[in-house]
Simulated scan of single mutants.
Amino acid sequence: MSEIIFQVEEAQEGGYIASALGHAIFTEADTLDDLRTNVRDAVRCHFDDETRRVVRLHFVRDEVIEA
Rank of each mutant, 00 (worst) to 15 (best):
H58G: 03
A24F: 15
E3S: 05
S19C: 11
V8D: 01
I4D: 01
G14H: 05
D62I: 14
H23S: 04
A24S: 15
E66T: 13
E13H: 12
T27K: 01
V43H: 02
T37H: 06
T27C: 14
R40P: 01
A42H: 00
D34P: 03
A42R: 01
I25P: 09
A67P: 12
V39I: 11
E10H: 13
L21Y: 09
D41H: 09
V64P: 04
T37F: 07
E9R: 15
A11R: 14
D33R: 12
D49W: 08
S2P: 13
A20M: 07
D33M: 08
I4Q: 06
A11K: 12
I65E: 15
A18T: 06
E63F: 14
Q7F: 06
F59C: 05
R44T: 08
A24D: 15
V39N: 00
L21Q: 13
L57T: 00
R61P: 06
A11H: 11
V43R: 00
E63V: 15
E63Y: 13
V39D: 02
M1W: 02
L32Q: 14
S2I: 09
D62H: 14
V64Y: 11
R56L: 06
E28A: 14
I65K: 14
H58D: 07
L35E: 07
G14V: 07
F26G: 05
F47D: 00
L57W: 00
T31C: 01
L35V: 06
V54K: 05
E10Q: 15
V55F: 01
E50V: 08
E3K: 05
V55H: 05
E63D: 12
V8M: 06
S2C: 11
R52M: 07
A29R: 02
D49E: 10
Y16K: 02
V54A: 07
C45K: 10
G15Y: 03
V60W: 04
G22E: 07
I25R: 07
T27Q: 05
R44W: 08
G22K: 10
N38T: 00
E10F: 10
L21G: 05
H23A: 12
T51Y: 02
F47Q: 02
V39T: 03
D34H: 12
C45V: 12
L35P: 08
G14S: 05
V64R: 13
R44L: 07
A29Y: 00
S19K: 14
